[in-house]
Design a protein around this nucleic acid. Sequence first.
DNA 1: ATATTTATGTTATATTATTACACAGCGTTA
DNA 2: TAACGCTGTGTAATAATATAACATAAATAT
Lengths: 130, 130
Amino acid sequence: MHKEHTLTKNQQIIFDLIDKSTEPMKAYSILFNVQKKGIKAPLQVYRALDKLVEIGKIHKIESRNAFIACHNSSCQVAKATAFSICEICEKVTEISSAGLSKYLANFKDKDGMKYSKYNLEFFGLCKKCR
Amino acid sequence: MHKEHTLTKNQQIIFDLIDKSTEPMKAYSILFNVQKKGIKAPLQVYRALDKLVEIGKIHKIESRNAFIACHNSSCQVAKATAFSICEICEKVTEISSAGLSKYLANFKDKDGMKYSKYNLEFFGLCKKCR
DNA sequence: ATATTTATGTTATATTATTACACAGCGTTA
DNA sequence: TAACGCTGTGTAATAATATAACATAAATAT
Ligand SMILES: [Zn+2]
Ligand SMILES: [Zn+2]
Ligand SMILES: [Zn+2]
Ligand SMILES: [Zn+2]
């Protein structure tokens, strides 16, 4: 139940673009692609991205500074994310594994740190590139 | 057995600085701090950082664009890293948990992706900030 | 209707990272 | 020796990523 936000105009334009894309998109590539729709400045893009990340419609792939749409209904508002990244073709897939999320959600370190969130990025070769 | 490289002058200067630091250091902060030692340009810093990451003496905290020295002898040349990050004080700790690394090293997704590497970042509040 | 919050538009700027080119040091080997 | 490959260095310029600051408009709450 985390996709029920009404997006604003800019948010919708930018989400649609990312959602259509088969690969992670970078902020300035997004900017370039939405300029014909009237979004002219980096900040307009970054503001929409921030909001979309916050509400869990997209995720940021930190190691790539790029964004993908969430296609995992079980990922809890971007608080627990896992991705696989192919180091050759750069294909990124969101991992949805109940076992993995359960393991990580319950993980506790020896310092008594209480975790509210995690992000995991796996790297390797995808089927095609292997 | 992954710390046995002979560092070059620039690599040693930059490693020493990061190693002394109690918090993750950013590239341009490193640059500022080593200018008195003759390292004057960003590229000199980034080249040393790249090498230090490659040989596993430091790690990059992707979500922060910052670097910390490795204090975990069991992390396999930066191929399997996990950190806890306090969202208030920004303290970062490298997690060394045999259980966790074993679980992640053995994790396989349904697409048959073969992982050679992972990076995990946990976020929450540290003891002090809780 | 008024206050508050959220989103927008715009300009400028800060921060992070790489490209390109010249050259120095070192070990290999022809 | 000399030629070569490899790694590291120095320097300038520039690319790519992200935010600050300020003004205004739209949506929401009291
Ligand atoms: Zn998701
Ligand atoms: Zn691939
Ligand atoms: Zn380590
Ligand atoms: Zn803290």
